[in-house]
């Protein structure tokens, strides 16, 4: 990813920043607006990102709330249960997401998990609902109820960066190395939800707090990779 710069709402994307595509089509992502015939302006503040291979251009922002998209992994909180489904909270003050009572791995009427109000599940957004298994294969793929642990709130964009994974040469694509660095020192379980929630569980409360705190600070203070490495080392030395 290249960063041609930061745009403010209403600013016009310079022609030179547009990706050169073979096909000649341009895909506009979030935060951009096309004014015919050929003006592209920003609708929000963010840094301009382009992908030459896909011919895509979009704005990367750290604000805004989470908009569910099919395939996203999210951490949902059960609000209430009804005969057919659970109503879950993805983000506060938005309509509930529906999680089927049987949308778990190997669940039937007798073996389905009994979830109470306030419980957490790691789920995936499907077309109209959320589900805790891959409906194509029937496997849980790491999804399901989350027991114990603690969730920390981060911005949706930081959660996205956390989930980008590593490229072929072992570099974190999203520029977040806190989890990898901390993982070398302490053992913990982690689940990242695109709705801006990170669930962490380790053997002691202290470790969980320290790792969660590092993530939240890295997000709020916008730490770079070097800063993250330094802080993780500094903080984990005392644990």
């Amino acid at each position: 990813m290249t960063t041609p710069g930061v745009l403010l709402p209403g600013e016009v994307v310079p022609q030179s920043a547009l990706p050169a595509t073979k096909k000649g089509t341009l895909t506009l992502g979030p935060g951009l607006h096309h004014v015919p015939p050929s003006t592209i302006s920003a609708t929000t503040t963010g840094s301009l990102q382009t992908d030459n291979k896909k011919g895509a251009i979009w704005l990367e922002t750290s604000h805004g709330r989470y908009q569910p998209t099919v395939g996203d992994h999210v951490i949902a909180q059960i609000h209430h249960s009804s005969t057919e489904s659970y109503s879950c909270i993805l983000t506060p003050h938005t309509p509930y997401a529906i999680l089927g009572q049987l949308a778990f791995e190997g669940a039937n009427k007798k073996t389905r998990p009994q979830l109470k109000s306030g419980d957490l599940v790691y789920a995936r957004v499907s077309k109209t609902k959320i589900e805790c298994f891959n409906s194509a294969t029937g496997k849980s793929e790491g999804m399901g109820p989350l027991k114990a642990g603690m969730t920390f709130s981060v911005t949706p964009s930081f959660a996205r960066r956390l989930m980008m994974g590593t490229s072929k040469d072992g570099q974190a694509k999203g520029g977040v190395v806190v989890l990898e660095e901390a993982g070398e020192k302490v053992r913990f379980e982690v689940a990242v939800g695109r709705n801006g929630k990170v669930w962490i569980d380790s053997s002691t409360a202290r470790e969980t707090i320290v790792i969660g705190g590092l993530l939240v600070r890295a997000d709020e203070e916008g730490w770079g990779v070097e800063m993250q490495r330094k802080m993780v080392k500094k903080v984990l030395r005392d644990v």
Partner: peptide, 24 residues
């Protein structure tokens, strides 16, 4: 106000019993 999840509620209590808070 959205109430904290059972996990968070229990964790905060366990941590407080060990003299720990989320913001250290």
């Amino acid at each position: 106000e959205v109430t904290p999840s059972t996990n968070n509620h229990d964790f905060i209590l366990t941590a407080l019993r060990q003299n720990l808070r989320l913001d250290s």
